[in-house]
């Protein structure tokens, strides 16, 4: 019954090529001996060697990973609470405001979030003395504020689709609401929590603009190092870094796809 439409497939192929060719070129040229993009002077892994000896970049990467993990963990807790509120609490007073406030960071330009949070931190430091200076804590707080919206979206859709009969059965058998939530609901929404965590982790690892505003001296994150070297022009070390990131992401996606495919059978 279904006919394939060739123009449609053509656009689809063009779209995928558009999305993937730049990434594939980066990977290809990370193995190029020459510094120039257009000259292929032989296969080499020397840029990877230089990357692994770039102490400034490694320090920044370690800081970014720690911030991203902290951010993802707190964002999952807050985002899940917010999703509970939206799905389970029905119509409460201030619900529209709550939803607006929660969803606004999804589209709010980074420059506005970054600037406004920095001004808040400066004002707070002046009035109550906290946060004392800027760095890890302030970057993590800024990232949590916009990541929790993404987590809430993911967990909310999972909660809304969930079959409530297991929870009702547990309630009928006399389980306390908190016990039901911890023993029945949380395991059921665990896949959403995991994808929310990974999403928040990635968003934090990727953020340049907000971190630039709310970081202090001595707290340079990975995107800030990448940005300053990219502004100088094409740098083969960044090509090598890009290749490593793509490799890690591809492996993670393959594992996720594999476990998800096995999931329903168990």
């Amino acid at each position: 019954m279904k006919r394939r439409s060739w123009p449609l497939l053509g656009i689809l192929a063009f779209g995928y090529a558009f999305l993937y060719v730049p990434i594939l070129l980066l990977i290809l040229y990370s193995f190029n001996e020459s510094r120039l993009v257009t000259v292929w002077s032989g296969f080499s892994t020397k840029w990877y060697g230089e990357l692994l000896h770039n102490q400034q970049l490694l320090d920044a990467a370690w800081l970014s990973v720690r911030i991203a993990a902290t951010n993802a963990t707190v964002a999952v807790v807050l985002g899940t609470l917010a999703a509970n509120a939206l799905v389970r609490q029905g119509r409460f007073r201030g619900r529209t405001g709550f939803e607006l406030l929660l969803m606004a960071p999804l589209v709010m330009p980074d420059v506005i979030i970054g600037l406004s949070l920095l001004l808040l931190f400066v004002a707070m430091q002046q009035t109550i003395g906290w946060p004392d200076g800027r760095g890890f804590t302030t970057i993590a707080i800024a990232h949590i504020t916009f990541s929790m919206a993404y987590v809430a979206v993911v967990v909310r859709s999972r909660l809304a689709q969930m079959d409530g009969s297991l929870e009702e059965a547990a309630m009928d058998l006399g389980a306390r609401p908190l016990g039901v939530y911890l023993q029945i609901t949380l395991p059921l929404i665990a896949p959403a929590l995991l994808s929310g965590w990974l999403l928040a982790f990635t968003l934090s690892l990727d953020d340049l603009v907000i971190a630039s505003f709310v970081s202090g001296p001595g707290s340079t994150t990975l995107p800030m190092v990448v940005y300053s070297s990219v502004r100088m022009g094409v740098s083969p070390q960044i090509n090598a870094l890009a290749t490593l990131i793509v490799l890690i992401v591809a492996i993670a996606v393959l594992i996720a796809g594999f476990t998800m495919r096995r999931g329903p059978n168990r």
Binding site: P22, I23, L25, L26, T202, L205, D206, L208, P223, V226, Y227, V230, I238, L241, A242, I245, V246, V249, A252, V253
Partner: peptide, 10 residues
């Protein structure tokens, strides 16, 4: 899921 900054740089 890969870095936004690096994709722009490409």
């Amino acid at each position: 899921w890969t870095s936004f900054l690096i994709r722009v740089y490409a």
